[in-house]
């Protein structure tokens, strides 16, 4: 008897835990409310089945526990009952699958008006690139990456010159404007994940992966890496700041473009050359003095 009671308490405890838990979703801040709804639906259907199955089991434990003088029923098969259960389960599963597929269809089809953001990941950090005035991101290559070209943009790609570079692990987004996150990695797998946005996707070296969402709540959010990427995985953080359009434009205006960077470097190279010449002269003078 005590077995049935303890099992019952376990089920009861599970339900109570769910009702009183302080740990649940963070408030959603993107358009993927459909995901939350599907989870809720799955939760209630699945939870219902779980509780029903367990309660039935507990009922059996109470009702049919061993008695010397009783004989169990002998009934190898009940075709009708099995058929009913199969059909009911199939319908239930189909009902859960359908919304999942519908939302996935939205997830893989990016809206036309979304802004593309190139998210580049490495061990262990993030940086971001936005398209410039031409609205297009330049193509990139890992081998191009160096101090002068932190994103590895192909120098002969005309679309790359006006790309806006955010060499920081924090990116600003415009509220209520869909963004297409283009993920790439220079070393291992990473995953750009903001719990409040619900969406995520791995960054895979060698290809570019994508997903999209539409932030709809102004605020600051933390970016976590959600794919194991080495010993620094747990500390690989970034940030997102969702702003209203005005502040976003203001922020955008402050950012450096690739051509700005190139220009600055050219200047630096020239100054370096000058400095080098000067030092040569100095050396000569030094020699002569000797």
């Amino acid at each position: 008897m005590h077995a049935g009671i303890i099992f019952f308490l376990v089920i009861l405890g599970s339900i109570l835990f769910h009702i009183f838990t302080p740990w649940y979703w963070t408030d959603i801040a993107s358009n993927w409310k459909g995901m939350d709804d599907t989870i809720t639906l799955t939760f209630w259907v699945g939870g219902g089945v779980f509780v029903a199955v367990c309660l039935f089991m507990i009922y059996c434990v109470f009702k049919y526990s061993y008695k010397e003088d009783r004989k169990a029923e002998y009934k190898p098969e009940d075709k009708k009952l099995e058929k009913i259960l199969t059909v009911a389960t199939t319908l239930g599963v189909a009902a859960l699958l359908a919304p999942g597929l519908i939302i996935w269809n939205q997830y893989v089809n990016v809206p036309k008006n979304s802004i593309e953001i190139d998210v580049m990941a490495w061990q262990w950090g993030w940086q971001y690139r936005l398209p410039g005035n031409d609205g297009k991101l330049g193509t990139t290559k890992v081998v191009n990456i160096n101090d002068d070209n932190p994103f590895g943009i192909n120098l002969d790609d005309p679309y790359g010159r006006d790309d806006i570079m955010v060499q920081s692990d924090i990116i600003n987004l415009e509220n209520n404007r869909p963004v297409k996150i283009l993920l790439r990695s220079v070393d291992v797998l990473h995953n750009w994940y903001v719990p409040q946005f619900r969406a995520k996707m791995d960054a895979v070296p060698g290809v570019v992966t994508y997903y999209w969402f539409e932030p709809n709540k102004v605020g600051e959010y933390e970016v976590l890496c959600a794919e194991y990427c080495g010993v620094g995985h747990y500390a690989m953080r970034g940030g997102v700041e969702v702003q209203d359009p005005n502040s976003y434009q203001e922020w955008l205006g402050e950012q450096e473009t690739f051509s700005d960077l190139l220009a600055k470097q050219n200047k630096e190279i020239e100054t370096k050359k000058v400095a080098k010449n000067n030092s040569n002269i100095e050396k000569v003078i030094y020699k002569e003095e000797k």
Partner: peptide, 17 residues
């Protein structure tokens, strides 16, 4: 039951990893 969450593609997105 939790497997049904994770098998259902878009439900898996927030929960995976």
């Amino acid at each position: 039951i939790t497997g049904i969450f994770l098998g259902n593609v878009s439900v898996d997105v927030p929960l995976s990893d």
